[in-house]
Amino acid sequence: MHNLEDAAVARRWSELVEQLHHRVDVLAKKFISQVREIPEYGESTVETDEIMQTARETFHRLVNGLRNGGNAEAGADYDADISASLGAKRARAGIPAEALVSAVRLDFTILWAELLAIATPEDAPMLTARVDQVWRVVDEFAVRTHTSYLNERVRMAQEESSIQNEFIARLFSVVSPSADTAAQVAEALGVSANARFGLVAASGSAAARLRAAQVKAAAKRNQRFFLRESGDMAYVFWPVAAARTGEVKAVIATVPQVFADIPCGVAEANGLRALPKAARTASSLAALLQPADTGPLSANQAWPRLAKRQLAEAGLDLVEELDAALDPCRGVERERLTEAARHFLQSGSVTLTAEALFCHRNTVLNRLNRFQELTGIDLTVPNQAARLVVAWA
Rank of each mutant, 00 (worst) to 15 (best):
A7C: 04
A8C: 07
Q19L: 06
H22T: 00
D25S: 02
Q34T: 15
Y41E: 13
Q53H: 15
T58Q: 11
F59W: 06
A76D: 15
D81G: 11
L86Q: 10
G94C: 08
I95N: 06
V101D: 15
V101W: 13
A103R: 07
L106A: 13
I110D: 04
A129G: 11
D132I: 10
V138P: 14
D139H: 15
H146C: 03
R153F: 08
S162D: 12
I163N: 15
I163T: 15
E166N: 15
E166P: 08
I168T: 02
L171N: 02
V174S: 13
P177I: 01
S178R: 02
D180F: 03
A202L: 05
K220Q: 11
Q223K: 14
Q223D: 13
R224W: 04
F226N: 11
A234C: 04
V248Y: 11
V255G: 03
P256R: 01
C264A: 13
L275G: 07
A278I: 05
T281E: 09
L285V: 02
A286T: 13
L289V: 11
A292L: 04
S298K: 15
A312L: 08
L316Y: 01
L326M: 04
R330A: 15
G331K: 08
F344P: 01
T380Q: 05
A391L: 06
A391G: 10
A393R: 00
